[in-house]
Nucleic acid binder design. Structure first.
Lengths: 230, 230
DNA sequence: ATAAAGGCTTACCAGTAGAAAGTTTTTTGT
DNA sequence: ACAAAAAACTTTCTACTGGTAAGCCTTTAT
């Protein structure tokens, strides 16, 4: 880690710069020169640290997904019941540090790299599988095995749908609106008998308030950096 | 129309070629040269008919969305009840002529153009609004006004989610699986009392079988061409 | 028949990805 | 402490890309 430190620092800086370029100029407008400009180095440096543009974009993609995964892990530490664990996964996906216009639009731009990039596919599949398994695990407390799986798949797809729409449509991205859309789905999926709505809302609100503090904190950001620069 | 016919024919040919390029090489691999090659003309022709690359991609985007909208309209002609009308919208989105790996991946590639292209945004918004209003209209037969709106939004988002996942993940795209995911959502959304599951399944199957015949037919394809080349 | 217009090609320019070779700085072995 | 090796960075070069502009050829209108 000591040996690679400069390299990994540069890789982190450059993928941040690349992300910024995607935010500002879209995927088609993101050139190596611009990425270099934003990072304050020459284009050559970019290609010195990443073998090519696909490799760079892949790093950006991995970065965004890591932030998401780590957020779930972090929130899990504070969860004390299965409802709370369920809401950890959901809130992590829609906490405003993560879920906002810039990021959603960048994500929509980035995913166009996936179909023709095996590595990105791998990342996406892993990330999806993890979210789904987290959801399934929590849902098994309220539903039978097969129902829990179906419901987890359903919620996962819905999360992707909300992300895509937030990136595509012009209306402002709104965390609480996104969450209440999920709440709508959850309330339909989990039969009223299994668990009272109130308990769910309490769990959601607890995790939501933890998320707004924890995910935005300096400590968490620094923790992330270590994970991300791998 | 006679005067412009060559122009509109070329525009259709070229957007088909561009679509094919996106399918084969992804958005980043889609160059004007390649589009020209596929269409069997020089790059200059492409720019003669489209003012720039954005304009071309926009046409491709409009084309795909038109096919979707027109499919809904076409299926509507055969619907005889509100259940059937509800399923028209859904089945049109997942009929195998439209919903397959090539198209899903191309769609995922194409939408990265949306955040930085006002015209594409306009198209996307219009298309979404139409689907949503169709869904809302049908759902009002089973739910109250506000519930119908929420449910329509939910289903619309879910449809987008399924599309995105089908384009992103490697597992094969499967119409019937997609439809059964929607069926899952519909069965949760519409209270059992309002309408029996059986009636729904019958409606779905009727529209599904009509779709497999009608949407793939020569007549429909020709009808589409007229609409698409505008 | 000839002028006008639209369809198409070619030649060109300013970027753009990426390879390669060269230079500086840092790390490491002794 | 210092030379050798490795890594960080720069510069240069090439093939290709999007986009412009000038020009040629075919069709149509008069």
């Amino acid at each position: 880690m000591k040996i690679n430190s400069i390299r990994s620092i540069r890789r982190t800086e450059l993928s941040k710069a690349a992300f910024e370029a995607v935010v500002q100029f879209g995927l088609r407008g993101t050139t190596l020169d611009r990425v270099g400009d934003i990072a304050g180095v020459s284009k050559g440096v970019v290609l010195h640290h990443f073998k090519d543009k696909s490799n760079l974009l892949e790093a950006v993609f991995r970065r965004s997904n890591s932030i998401l995964s780590e957020s779930v892990v972090e929130l899990y530490r504070y969860a004390e019941s299965s409802h709370e664990r369920l809401w950890c996964v959901i809130i992590a996906n829609f906490a405003s540090v993560i879920f906002n216009k810039r990021v959603c639009q960048a994500w929509v731009s980035l995913i166009s790299e996936v179909p023709h990039n095996k590595q990105c596919q791998r990342i996406q599949i892993a990330c999806n599988a993890r979210i789904q398994s987290n959801l399934t695990y929590s849902l098994k407390n309220f539903l039978g095995n097969q129902d829990a799986k179906d419901a987890a798949r359903h919620l996962g797809t819905l999360i992707d749908g909300i992300w895509v729409r937030s990136g595509l449509l012009v209306d402002p991205v709104d965390s609480s609106r996104a969450i209440s859309e999920i709440q709508f789905a959850v309330s339909k999926i989990i039969p009223n008998g299994a668990i009272s709505q109130e308990k769910h809302i309490i769990a959601r609100e607890k995790i939501e308030s933890i998320a707004s503090i924890v995910l935005g904190s300096r400590a968490f950001q620094e923790k992330l950096l270590k994970v991300i620069s791998k």
